[in-house]
Nucleic acid binder design. Structure first.
Lengths: 163, 163
DNA sequence: ACAAAACATTATAATCAGTATAAATTTATA
DNA sequence: TATAAATTTATACTGATTATAATGTTTTGT
């Protein structure tokens, strides 16, 4: 009798087609998470949107369809998802926890102008001597200006900042 | 008449010998920061210790020698150092801002058992297509178990965790 | 099906790192 | 020395997150 057995699934980087509630329900069950309505909806948002939302962003979006949902439920559910390791926590910015259902190894670029976070493909990473260390999490976070924000501000950039 | 001109200095990864208060004073002046006593002491701690401390850790340590110092001064000073870009902010952990006076490109490993943060040398990093992006900050954060904590817990690791 | 246990959700209060404010002190300079 | 500018302080505040405790909902054993 096997208990507490979970199948670890490498989530695909971009879903060719969105996950159905049925698929999500099955997936959550596999991971030892009872697929309640709110959990389905929260995971659906994370896996099908991919905007690296904050807890509050999720709350505000879902509230439009489900006015009864509470902030606490969103926080509780995200904490559960983290514990069960089906989402990862991004600390790109201080005081701004973001959540990502894409567990493949990739980096994040945050635009300091528009605030958007984009995925960055990592071709290769070589580190020195981590013998004896057990690495459980890796995060690569970049910050700067995205192409469209640079375009929008070309004038200022050419002028140069010397403050 | 040149104003607001600063010399950007790549700080050495490990100081062979600690920076003297005189050197720090000169350095802060170069960077456009008036070298007040508290600023000297805070930067001295950051540059000579290299423990990636939180604001509160700095406050508690300095308070032993300088009981008059206030928490607000430490926060104010660290914010100033960030603005002037002579230290970098580490967001390895949520709700735990840490500060690093080493601005050379390196990663950080946080041990989940003892909480210590060690530097990690990055031999090589190749990213895909960031054409059009302007990268201003890079952070590589690892988490896991450090050698001494693994040693301490060898028993548990061998047993395996299947929860 | 029924009771008990386990789990899920909610509203509210509490926490805690960090920030803003405004007064007091120190330093620079006319 | 006066006056302005910068620095430091104590205190109050903010805002994201967590804890609490009450309520509602499934699951499980009988």
């Amino acid at each position: 009798m096997i208990k507490n057995m979970r199948v670890r699934v490498e989530l695909r980087e971009k879903p060719e087609k969105p996950w159905s509630l049925d698929e999500i329900s099955q997936f959550l069950s596999q991971q030892g998470i009872r697929p309640s309505f709110y959990r389905l909806k929260i995971f659906e948002y994370l896996i099908n949107e991919r905007t690296h939302p904050t807890a509050d962003e999720i709350y505000e979006v879902l509230r439009k369809d489900i006015p009864a949902i509470s902030r606490a439920t969103v926080y509780n559910t995200l904490r559960l998802f983290l514990e069960k390791q089906i989402v990862q926590l991004l600390n790109v910015e201080k005081n701004e926890a973001r959540y990502d259902a894409n567990l493949t190894w990739h980096g994040h670029f945050k635009c300091l102008a528009c605030g958007q976070i984009n995925d960055v493909e990592i071709k290769d990473l070589k580190l020195a001597d981590l013998d004896g260390y057990q690495v459980l999490e890796k995060h690569l976070d970049l910050k700067g200006l995205c192409p469209s924000c640079r375009e929008r501000n070309k004038f200022k950039e050419q002028e140069g900042l010397n403050g």
